[in-house]
C-alpha cells in the first residue's frame, strides 16, 4: 500500500519513491526477538543457556557460595525476570556486605581481570571520589547470567553495590521509573534495600544499597548520577 500524495499538482511523488528506495530497514536483532517472545510468553520464558562453563574458578566459586548460602531466600515466584534478577542482586549485595573484603588498594588494578571473567567491559568506570570509594570488584553469576559486581562505600560506611549483568531479555517496566538528572531508571525498594535499575548498552545495571529512607534515597540517587555519568559499558567479550 502506498500513499503517493500528489503534492505537486500531478507530479510523480519523487520523495515517496526516494524514501521507499533509500530508507534503510532495521531488522529486529535476534536477542530482541527472543526477549519479546519471552515477554509474550512469560510462563515459557526464562530459558537459560543450556550450558555455560565459567571461564574462571572464582566466578564459579562465587556462584556456588551464593547458591549454598542463599538457598532459603531464593525467590519462589517464576516468571518475572526483572524481579528474579533484583532478588539475585540483593543477595549478591548482602554477600558483599557480609563477606566481601574491602580492597580499595587493589582498585582499579583488579578491574581488567574482573572484566574478562565477567564478560562485561567497562570502557570508563567511576572509581570513586571524596564521597564514594570503590572498594571491591568481583565477577559473579546472577540468574543464569554472567555479571560484574562493583562495591562502593560512602563516608558513613554504607555499602553500595553496582552490578552489571548480561541479559538484554530483561524488560524494565515504565511503572516506577523516575527522572534522575537526564536519566530515567527504575527506582524501587524491596526487603529493606533500595534498588536503581536501568539498561545501558544492552546490559542490565542495578545499584543496590540500604539507603532507603527519604534522605538516604536522595543520597543514593546522587551516587547513581556519579556512577551513571562516569561509566561507559560494552559487551566486548
Amino acid at each position: 500500500m502506498t500513499n503517493d500524495i500528489d503534492d505537486h499538482g500531478g507530479e510523480p511523488d519523487e520523495i515517496a519513491q526516494f524514501l521507499r528506495e533509500r530508507v534503510a530497514r532495521h531488522q529486529a536483532p535476534t536477542r530482541l526477538r527472543a526477549a519479546v517472545v519471552e515477554t509474550l510468553s512469560p510462563s515459557e520464558g526464562r530459558r537459560r543457556p543450556s550450558l555455560w562453563l565459567p571461564p574462571a574458578l572464582s566466578a564459579l566459586a562465587t556462584a556456588m557460595v551464593m547458591l549454598l548460602w542463599l538457598a532459603p531466600v531464593l525467590p519462589r515466584s517464576g516468571g518475572d525476570p526483572l524481579q528474579l534478577l533484583s532478588h539475585a542482586v540483593m543477595t549478591e549485595h548482602a554477600r558483599a556486605v557480609l563477606w566481601g573484603e574491602a580492597r580499595p588498594d587493589a582498585m582499579p588494578g583488579a578491574l581488567p581481570h574482573v572484566m574478562e571473567e565477567s564478560g562485561v567491559l567497562l570502557n570508563w568506570v567511576f572509581t570513586g571520589d571524596q564521597d564514594l570509594r570503590l572498594v571491591n570488584a568481583q565477577p559473579t553469576f546472577l540468574e543464569g547470567r554472567r555479571a560484574l559486581a562493583l562495591t562502593y562505600q560512602d563516608r558513613d560506611g554504607h555499602s553500595v553495590s553496582y552490578i552489571v549483568a548480561r541479559g538484554p531479555n530483561v524488560a524494565i517496566p515504565e511503572l516506577g521509573r523516575v527522572q534522575i538528572a537526564k536519566w530515567r531508571p527504575l527506582v524501587t525498594k524491596d526487603d529493606g534495600f533500595a534498588l536503581i535499575v536501568w539498561k545501558q548498552s544492552g546490559l542490565v545495571c542495578v545499584m543496590v544499597s540500604d539507603l532507603v529512607s527519604e534522605d538516604d534515597l536522595g543520597r543514593f540517587k546522587e551516587y547513581f548520577v556519579k556512577v551513571r555519568s562516569a561509566t561507559e559499558l560494552s559487551q566486548r567479550y
Binding site: 532495521h26 529486529a28 536483532p29 530482541l32 526477538r33 526477549a35 524488560a171
Partner: peptide, 28 residues
C-alpha cells in the same frame, strides 16, 4: 516486530533504546 523496531530506531536514534522501547511496547 521488525516494523516496530524499525520505527523505534528512527524515533530513538539509538539501537539499545529502540530495543527497550520495543520491549516496553510488547509488555504494554
Amino acid at each position: 516486530l521488525d516494523a516496530l523496531y524499525n520505527l523505534a530506531v528512527y524515533l530513538t536514534r539509538n539501537g539499545s533504546e529502540a530495543e527497550d522501547l520495543v520491549q516496553e511496547t510488547y509488555a504494554r
